[in-house]
Design a protein around this nucleic acid. Structure first.
Ligand SMILES: [Mn+2]
Ligand SMILES: [Mn+2]
Ligand SMILES: [Mn+2]
Ligand SMILES: [Mn+2]
Lengths: 226, 226
DNA sequence: TTTCAAAGTTAGACACGGCTAACATGTCAA
DNA sequence: TTGACATGTTAGCCGTGTCTAACTTTGAAA
């Protein structure tokens, strides 16, 4: 009943975890949401959900969506931990840019053993966050909370520190990176134009105008909130 | 016709390469030899050989065995390069012992990109040999020749340097490693008992008696041959 | 030259993880 | 209350890679 999940199953579990913990998302996740996120057909998802349920990793009811079980959540966190530690490793030890790490990690996460990931963790000094600012679950597989808030929820003008960038798109990450927009960077939210207008920020006294899409990907913390 | 080989196909190609380049082996490889090496049934091998032939990686004739094509050889060497560089990386950068590296590399070799392996290669200073003394194909995928000879072909007494240990068995490697028998170690072949008897060697003035099986795994070079 | 054991292939099955086409259900707005 | 449309499932297919059982071929010893 309970073998090691396949690489495919692991990606489903990660998707389930991400979708069920997204801001204002319910615990139960739609078939369609999973299909969209993984670029698979809906019937494929239905079929895998049944299989994951049989393995005790997911609780699923026809037409009612799916939710991770405790076991499923653990497996998801194990893979997420691997993914993010691999990203840090590639970035710090092998010169990968933060826009390159995701795709490589997406494959390696299914091939590295628990032992290897622990040795990488130690070699890196037990990092808490990956290059995008995503929190890395510890060995005990508890997810660290990320006390950062979306840039769009800040009242301008305000000095903030970037904590996390919620994108894996390498073009987006390259564009942001070239402008110094990365976790740890101090920026100033200057103005938020109304009617879904752009956000004006200043970084190193240089003004940058971000569309709402981009701006909503930035998670920040006001500098005086520390 | 020619997609990227699957992980399974890559293991078949490696097996084909190893079996066809083994000492006193013909270029054509038996179905049974592959099945034994990969612990698979013979029908599975027949079926994969047909598939590899369709992909242009193997030339195969019913009841006549199989041989790698030029393309197949290239693919095999690409995977072998990955395997051995991963072994070096795990050993030197992450504290793996030489008895632990093989199993981990066996999975990772199918997941690392060509880009990643080149960065690992550079980070390691372009090593020529893996922890077992196996030669690492260069970026151009040419196999370096290993000018070492089997310990059993040496006329005792003779001072030799160990160049290579032809085993992936972790129990064997641990046993040898504990006694200092590893690539680079200088040893003295003291005596070769007749009638398939043991080989007596001395390392750090300590006598060790090796059965023929173990002794045949050691590849050495006389110290004055340099 | 015959025979027979080892090696090899074919046939047929299965699990997995995809897909499309067709059908079923749920939900929201009229 | 009732469509209509979005969402979800079922049915049936496919490719990959494995297996066992049964049959065929090879090649070497007698
Ligand atoms: Mn993945
Ligand atoms: Mn990340
Ligand atoms: Mn392998
Ligand atoms: Mn090796």
């Amino acid at each position: 009943m309970n073998r090691t999940p396949s690489a495919s199953a692991e990606d489903y579990l990660k998707a389930l975890y991400a979708l069920s913990t997204a801001p204002d998302a319910s615990e139960r996740v739609n078939t369609k949401a999973i299909a969209d996120r993984l670029s698979l057909s809906q019937p494929s998802v239905t079929s895998m959900l049944k299989s994951l349920q049989k393995q005790g990793l997911v609780s699923y009811a026809s037409y009612r969506g799916a939710a991770l079980t405790a076991d499923g959540r653990t497996e998801a966190l194990r893979v997420i931990r691997k993914h993010r530690l691999i990203e840090v490793f590639l970035h710090r030890m092998l010169g990968y840019s933060w826009s390159e790490v995701h795709d490589e990690a997406e494959r390696l996460e299914h091939a590295v053993s628990d032992t290897l990931i622990d040795r990488m963790d130690a070699a890196l000094g037990f990092p808490d966050f990956d290059p995008h600012g995503d929190p890395i679950p510890g060995r005990d597989l508890t997810m660290r909370s990320h006390d950062a808030v979306c840039l769009l929820e800040i009242e301008p003008p305000c000095e903030v520190t970037i904590k996390r960038v919620m994108s894996q798109d390498s073009a987006v990450l390259d564009w942001l990176g070239q402008r110094g927009i990365r976790p740890g960077a101090p920026i100033r939210l200057v103005h938020l134009s109304p009617f879904d207008g752009p956000a004006e920020i200043a970084i190193d006294d240089r003004a940058i105008h971000l569309g709402r899409g981009l701006a909503s990907m930035l998670r920040v913390r006001p500098v005086d909130a520390d």
